[in-house]
Amino acid sequence: MVGATLENMDIDLGIGAVRAARTVLADHLPATPSWAAPALTEAAGCQVVLKHEEVQPTGAFKVRGGLNLLAGMSPEQRRRGVVSASTGNHGQSLAYASRRFGARCQIVLPEPVNPTKARALRGWGAELVVYGQDMETAGAHARELAGRGGARFVHPADEPALIAGVGTLYLELLTAHPDLDYLFVPVGGGSGAASACLVAASVAPGCRVIAVQTTASRAAHDSWRTGELVSRPNRTAVEGLAIGIGYATTQALLRRHLTDFLLVDDEQVRVAQLLLLTHAHTLAEGAGAAALAGLLSMADRLAGTRAAIVVSGGNASPAELGSVLGARPVAAA
């Protein structure tokens, strides 16, 4: 669908689906904490609220989507299993949910594989297939595998059940902090950003949602700017943001509700990871810190406001952690 226009795309997904997902997830996951980080607020120059999704059993917010999707499948569908492609966190969400619901789960990983995430995927019982050099190639192979064996192919972004499940975190956040001025969200495939837009538009219309992607993998950003699904070079080292094309479902929701879309570079993401570690006692992988990088990039416009970011992705590899410790510390605002 690269090249498709987004202006009149009909997406039948509303806040009711998110509220229904919250009921489903209540039997599986407790609400995660969200609170202010005073030292981070001082460094950023505005009040910063952190939503701590790194405490999820898989270390990332995506587990919400996987559980919601598997909960809605029939016993026969679960028996046939699910297949998807992932750099790690989306795959873990499906693996965790498949283990909870007794389903077979096969995940295709592009190279190079993060050993930390591969270990976690195996731990949750997923069957791993390493194929291709990027998510697009891995995704095509996953779709082929699903077709061969009758399993359900799960798209990492164009899946309403995933978006609704992820939306529950923003329902928690915006219910606990209804007076937020800004919500910064990272974008790879865009399921998290799309769900943030969907929930904010319904329960906190005064909160402006700002998306963040890296300059080295900017397909979602450029799709949103142009109003067409585009492909772009995919060179970021930030695994969770390494997507080279725009996706229809998430882009349509972003077009409706997103306030702005920022680009940061990989080094800014590493600096944000270090700041979370030193100023908020919080470990996040790159995709889980990109929102803070975006916030810092426009800090001069945020004085006197309240902004939130979702900290997610506690699955950084040792090599990534080494690069974070070597990053340049940020100066206080």
Rank of each mutant, 00 (worst) to 15 (best):
A4T: 12
A4L: 13
E7R: 10
M9E: 15
D10S: 07
D12I: 05
I15V: 03
R19L: 11
A20R: 15
A20V: 04
R22S: 12
T23L: 08
V24E: 09
L25S: 03
H28Q: 06
L29M: 05
A31C: 06
T32S: 15
A36L: 10
A36R: 15
P38S: 05
T41A: 09
A44V: 12
G45N: 00
C46R: 08
C46A: 14
V48Q: 12
V48N: 10
V48R: 10
L50E: 00
L50Q: 00
H52G: 02
H52I: 05
E53D: 14
V55Q: 12
T58E: 06
T58A: 07
G59L: 11
K62S: 04
G66H: 04
L69S: 01
R78S: 03
R78Q: 09
G81M: 10
S84W: 04
T87K: 01
N89C: 03
S93W: 09
S93H: 05
R99L: 07
G102E: 09
R104G: 15
R104I: 02
I107S: 10
L109M: 13
P112Q: 09
N114V: 05
K117S: 06
A118I: 10
A120F: 09
R122A: 13
G123V: 02
G125N: 06
G125H: 01
L128M: 07
V129T: 14
V129G: 08
V130F: 02
Y131N: 13
Q133E: 15
Q133V: 06
M135E: 08
T137I: 12
H141I: 11
E144F: 11
L145C: 03
G149P: 00
R152T: 15
A157W: 10
D158E: 11
D158S: 13
E159P: 04
E159D: 15
A164P: 07
G167K: 11
T168Y: 00
Y170N: 02
E172W: 01
L174G: 02
T175E: 12
D179S: 04
Y182L: 13
F184H: 12
S191A: 14
G192S: 12
G192F: 01
A193L: 15
A194T: 02
S195P: 05
C197F: 01
L198G: 01
A201L: 07
A201E: 13
V203F: 04
A204T: 06
G206A: 07
V209E: 02
V209K: 04
I210C: 00
T214F: 04
A216M: 03
S217I: 06
D222Y: 09
W224Q: 06
W224F: 11
R225S: 11
T226G: 08
P233S: 04
R235K: 05
V238P: 00
A242R: 15
A242Q: 14
A242G: 07
I245L: 02
G246W: 03
T250K: 08
L253Y: 05
L253M: 11
R256V: 13
L258A: 14
L258E: 11
L262S: 07
Q268L: 07
R270W: 09
V271S: 11
Q273P: 02
L275C: 03
L275Q: 13
T278G: 02
L283M: 12
L283E: 14
G286P: 13
G286C: 10
G294Y: 05
L295H: 13
L296R: 09
D300L: 00
D300Y: 01
R301Q: 14
L302A: 06
A303I: 07
G304S: 04
I309P: 02
I309S: 01
V310P: 00
A319H: 09
L321Q: 12
V330L: 13
A333M: 01
